[in-house]
């Protein structure tokens, strides 16, 4: 919705204008988030705010987006931060290709940029001549951990399906690839793979129908927990307790499900600390530390009963 985007970027612009950078010693960090409508990023944002209050030696300016794919607002936010002359920009790109150019511009303006959560596209970076480290979890590795857990429970030849996230989202792609890695390694039988756009209701509908088409399936890998909840409900309605479900993100709503066995596992990326860790790294560079290089991985953990 264009209207939504305009409103969002206008709101972001006003918020930024309202707080001009003062001449002061505290370094200023601009945090560019993805959709705050997503519980995961909302948590991350709160973690960053708590971190800023706790450290107290830098000023945090955070901007969130309306939805997962709203990279136009992100571009505007980066440009506004450049105009304000912040010391560092910490960004979770909404689009791994579209954000390369504005980030390059920020670096050229002498701003320290830390890319976290989703890695910028390697080809796009090469094409633009940008070298930038990535701070973040290994989505693919995490998904594989969940897939491995499922495979161990089922054994080789287990029949599984994947519920994917938004087809164009980078983390959705990484998680799908991670699941597929597990499928290949453990010789699972992948029956079907479909998107439910990260959404509970849609996952419920899509999975119900997949279950009809493949009544013999044994395991489900959902690319996030919202969709895993939809899958669990579909299984309950179908009266099937023999099918194993794994998810991703470890949101509070699925913890009871893991506890009582309706889900086998989920993956925790410690989202709350992710932004805070990236800010720490950025501040080290600002303070004269060495430039970051390659992939600085952040911890992930398989959550099971």
């Amino acid at each position: 919705m264009t209207f939504t985007k305009i409103a969002a970027s206008a709101a972001a612009a006003i918020a930024l204008l309202a707080a001009p950078v003062m001449a002061q010693d505290k370094p200023v960090v601009g945090l560019v988030m993805k959709s705050l409508a997503n519980e995961f990023f909302q948590n991350m944002m709160e973690g960053a705010e708590a971190h800023a209050a706790q450290r107290g030696d830098y000023e945090l300016r955070a901007v969130g987006m309306q939805n997962e794919t709203d990279f136009e607002s992100q571009i505007n936010a980066v440009e506004n931060f450049i105009t304000q002359g912040v010391d560092a920009i910490v960004i979770a790109p909404a689009d791994s290709k579209a954000m390369v150019r504005p980030i390059k511009k920020a670096i050229a303006a002498g701003i320290t940029v830390v890319n976290f959560d989703v890695a910028l596209d390697a080809d796009a970076k090469a094409q633009q001549g940008l070298e930038l480290a990535f701070v973040g979890p290994d989505n693919r590795g995490g998904a594989k951990m969940a897939g491995d857990a499922l495979a161990e429970a089922l054994g080789a030849g287990g029949k599984v399906v994947i519920i994917e996230g938004n087809p164009s989202a980078d983390n959705a792609t990484q998680r799908r690839l991670g699941f597929e890695d597990a499928v290949a390694e453990h010789s699972l039988d992948l029956l079907d793979s479909r998107t439910a756009h990260w959404e509970t209701e849609e996952a419920n509908q899509v999975f119900s129908t997949m279950l009809t088409a493949h009544p013999d399936l044994q395991g489900v890998m959902a690319a996030n927990d919202s969709m895993a909840i939809g899958v669990v409900k579909a299984l309950e309605n179908a009266g099937r307790s023999d099918i194993i479900v794994v998810g991703f993100d470890a949101i509070p709503a699925v913890l009871p499900m893991i506890e009582d066995g309706r889900m086998l596992a989920s993956v925790d990326q410690f989202g709350q600390q992710m932004a805070a860790n990236a800010i720490d790294l950025a501040l080290e560079v600002v303070a004269g530390g060495p430039e970051l290089e390659g992939w600085v991985t952040t911890p992930i953990e398989l959550v099971t009963k």
Binding site: A37, Q42, I229, E236, P252, A253, P256
Partner: peptide, 29 residues
């Protein structure tokens, strides 16, 4: 559309609300 979406996120703090009474769940299925 925007007001209600924003209000919903505001009220819930963007968190999924869960753990409903059993009778309610039973009605749904």
């Amino acid at each position: 559309l925007n007001i209600a979406r924003g209000a919903g996120l505001q009220v819930s703090n963007a968190e999924t609300i869960y753990a409903f009474p059993l009778a309610f769940e039973e009605f749904g299925s």
